[in-house]
Design a binder for these strands. Structure first.
Lengths: 213, 213
DNA sequence: CTCAATTTAGACCGATCGTCTATTTAATTA
DNA sequence: TAATTAAATAGACGATCGGTCTAAATTGAG
């Protein structure tokens, strides 16, 4: 059922020369945490489930993280970084026009959601939705991630202006903001419908808006 | 702290002529349930919290509802109906042009979110987001609500076409679908930012798209 | 060979969910 | 009007789970 699991762990301080067989326990917890939280969010996910899937005993968790909240903060940061890398990959591909890069990102997202049968969404969107049930300090972290993503998106839109793909009259910051507002809705809906169609529908509408037609 | 609460409930079968002081217990539970679930969603809300806020003892809950899942189904239906009424109110107001009716709906939503300090979002969006943590049967209920809302929205767009406000070339069903995909994202973001700005930004973008400019 | 550092083991408490029985009050029936 | 039935509340209970915390095990350092 689960690929990460059940390697016999030795108790006590590990030998210095080790780290052979299995990835660092901490990294494993983060990876598994991301996969579970992108699926079910923060509140309805229990530590136990993450530990079970990671094949890590409970005691270890509280060795590596102060508590669930601290773990959550680290997941938000890790997820933000993961996407920043994705953007660098797509948004700076000179083989494509700026608008094609945006389309490539959309295709990549579709592929990603399909791979997990539309069960996993966006961690930031998930957590934003449950904001009122979350530690208040999460709010600014989530907002910062959106700010970062919107900046990067605005950048590619400006390049599209310079390349003459879209009108110079468009306010790129506002358009990037619009994109991320709606895109999170599209991810949500794709999860509900278990289909890529909402992602396509929103992306297509957004591009029409850019092209002013 | 809480307006609904703490009216001394009489034990036992109620007199036939009654229903004077407080609303029916069942109705109270539904009302309170809606307010809590629009805020925190399904998974992270416990029955006890609803009972406490409603001032209703636990024994009553299981008298009126089979279990939490059955209660959730009833809340989805009640919320769907509540919004259907809202649409009837705004979308059939002949004093406004069709597009103005859409704008009136947006204003109403802004007012509604502001009233609760942007803590409450859309029940259907909330539950859609946590779909993977929900009883599988909820999926079709949520989809049906969106289908209904999109139909009503498509209707007002067709009226806008007939009134010459927007191009006859627009596919109203698709545009209504686009609206609801993005609008749920806007509600999510308004909750995160505790601001009406995402609602305005999305609505304004959507209207530009309709007007083709 | 101690002692500190690092990690695992799992006990523990409180909260949540759903059930169940007892109790209270009103309506119905005879 | 007494007995019975219907309708609702009271709240104890067990099972389970989530989060925390302490004890134990293992290794490295002096």
């Amino acid at each position: 059922m689960n690929q990460t699991a059940d390697i016999k762990r030795k108790r006590g301080r590990p030998p210095k020369t080790e780290n052979a067989d299995f990835r660092d326990t901490r990294e494993t917890l983060i990876t598994v945490g991301l996969s579970v939280l992108t699926e079910k969010g923060y509140s309805s996910t229990g530590i136990d489930e993450i530990l079970r899937k990671a094949g890590v005993p409970k005691g270890s968790f509280y060795h590596y993280f102060d508590n669930k909240e601290a773990f959550g903060r680290i997941l938000i940061e890790a997820y933000g970084r993961y996407f920043a890398r994705k953007f660098d990959r797509w948004f700076e591909d000179r083989a494509l026009t700026p608008l094609q890069r945006l389309e490539a990102f959309v295709e990549d997202a579709k592929t990603g959601m399909a791979r997990f049968e539309y069960r996993r969404g966006c961690l930031i969107g998930n957590l934003g939705q449950e904001m009122t049930a979350l530690p208040e300090g999460f709010r600014v972290l989530l907002q910062d991630v959106f700010t970062d993503w919107e900046c990067r998106t605005a950048g590619v839109l400006r390049e599209a202006q310079q390349a003459g793909e879209i009108s110079k009259d468009l306010k790129c910051d506002q358009m990037a903001h619009f994109f991320w507002i709606g895109w999170e809705g599209a991810v949500l809906r794709a999860k509900l419908d278990q289909s890529p169609e909402p992602l396509d529908r929103f992306a297509q509408g957004f591009l029409s808006l850019l092209r002013g037609s």
